[in-house]
Amino acid sequence: MAKEHEVKLVSVESPNLIPERDKQYPLVLEVSHLGIDFGGLTAVDEFNMALGKTEICGLIGPNGAGKTTVFNLLTKVYQPTRGTILLDGKDTHGMNTTKVNQAGIARTFQNIRLFDKLSVEDNVKIGLHNHINYGMMNGVLRLPKYWKEEKRAHEKAMELLSIFDMEHLAKDEAGSLPYGAQRRLEICRALATGPKVLLLDEPAAGMNPSETAELMDNIRKIRDTFHISILLIEHDMNLVMGICESIVVLNFGKIIAKGTPSEIQNNPQVIEAYLGKQREV
């Protein structure tokens, strides 16, 4: 299965130039010259990357490198100071977070952001919001359309929860779930919005090794069943090297390397900036 998606990378002189990938894969996400300044601080600069259809790409780098900031730029939680983001060839300039999601980018959050007081099922149903077709009138008057669409939404939500075997938790309050389950629920909710690109911000944070192994299988399963591209931030190198077909390394807001897992593992710059340091710790 993984073979089929293997990506041949075209080596380039400067890691900041695109295209760096095999052009035979249709691109879903093309980011060029993306950057943001917070006052005097340049958090991200000259961020160039492309994500192919059904590609799983890792975004790694030391703490404070700007990884989460890249996600916030892609989803317009922050407005980029410069650069362009093309989703399926369409410029997302001028879109807000809501529009970007409707256009096809869904995400999870490093510091989990669930609708704590709502049930697990309702969390997923909010993700399904734009795929449920009835308005306020139908909802208040409980017309047949309400029942039909709610039944469909329930089934769809259960189907999504079943990816992580979470159906039995459907009626629980989201905020009361254990940490790992909350992370999995965030993924379900993001998937419910029907994205083309899924951004996962440290999905394995706080999970034990067996949970992480299971998560790796599930991320692959998600890619294979939904045919979507996944960009993930993760500090767990086993996970990154295990499932990513390509990796982008960020340091001080700039890309210092791009390549396949084996290329990255042997890149002296990366070892110095990130991997080496980790071994010391």
Binding site: T97, D116, R189
Partner: peptide, 28 residues
């Protein structure tokens, strides 16, 4: 009835976490 409908969930979602609601494609 409003609270227990699609619109009501969106309203409660915005209350619980505005950014997450936006990231779910909800018009705040």
């Amino acid at each position: 009835n409003l609270v227990n409908s699609r619109s009501g969930r969106a309203i409660a979602g915005i209350r619980d976490n505005r950014i997450a609601a936006e990231a779910c494609g909800i018009q705040i």
